[in-house]
Amino acid sequence: MSTPILTIRGARRRYNADTPALQGADLELQSGTITALLGPSGSGKSTLLRAIAGLEPLDAGEIICGAQSWNGNGPAVPPEKRRVGMVFQDYALFPHLNAIANVAFGLNGSDKKKRALAQLEAAELGHKANAYPHELSGGEQQRVALARALAPNPAIVLLDEPFSGLDRRLRSELRARTIASLKAAGATALIVTHDAEEAMAVADQLALMGGGRIIQTGTPDDVWMNPASAAAARLLGDVDVFTGKVANGQVSTPLGDVPAPDFKPGQLVDVLVRPAAISVIPADDGAYALTECRSTGAELAMTLKAADGSHWRASTPAPCDLRTGDSVNIKLNQTFVTVTNSAG
């Protein structure tokens, strides 16, 4: 990849003694790409975003944009000098300004009204230019907020849970629109979300966050197929974990042996099994019992119990004539199984 437009190294931020928000986060943003920052609540996502914008000071670490150090050596560059556009979770539209004045806020020059209107028209909101924020629907407010952030042509656009206030249907529509606008502007964007599906849908690059650190980065496919840890795997979807020791280049699990060629014998590892890895074969004297069987429409979601009493989730395309209580055998698809160092 080319040189990153933004580099964050060892970012630390602590609000009070008990809850450090950032504990040494590292991240790089590539020019023109959309990166999704995915993590559970309280993992430090919003703090990292605010630190990039310059709204939150860092206790340690540095943020470098191109050749310029924003945090690190000398005083921090103030937010107004960073050329960063930000879409806030509650949009933060100025309630005393109408839509066009909101968009024009970050613009200068005599033609700023014209440019603001053009930006609004690109968001198909030209007819609402004179409406005040409280007169706009939630989706319209989001579009004005994005138009406002993009209008000054920022180097980087930060979006903090930009779709969280919207209902499901509107969400996917606005998500597509937002991505299209960002791509059309050629923007480098960082989108914070706690929704794995959303992150996979919008991102060129995925950054997983947990406990104030970036725990894995990569393309969505790569991260999904090769999670670096159980925590990373759980962020992206259902996964069951077996912890065991490596012997003879493999791990014995209740689902059968899993190859672990890259690990030393005796090493403690986590075996991460996605529900899709388990194919269920009906058998009268099978080794596994179905303890739960539920249709989600397109799929059948099952839980099965192994001989040692452990429970595993499996899924298979519906329809399927399996029932709770049936006994089954399984086939393990190793593509959806990953072995990682155990967290302990």
């Binding site: 310059g54 107004e80 806030f88």
Partner: peptide, 29 residues
């Protein structure tokens, strides 16, 4: 209390200095 921290953040990231933020966002509100 109507001037939420996010409004400050929005104004600052859009290029307003602290003084401009006070004049253009805080004062009218």
């Amino acid at each position: 209390s109507r001037v939420t921290p996010a409004l400050d953040g929005a104004a600052r990231t859009l290029g307003a200095t602290p003084l401009q933020t006070a004049r253009l966002v805080h004062w009218p509100l």
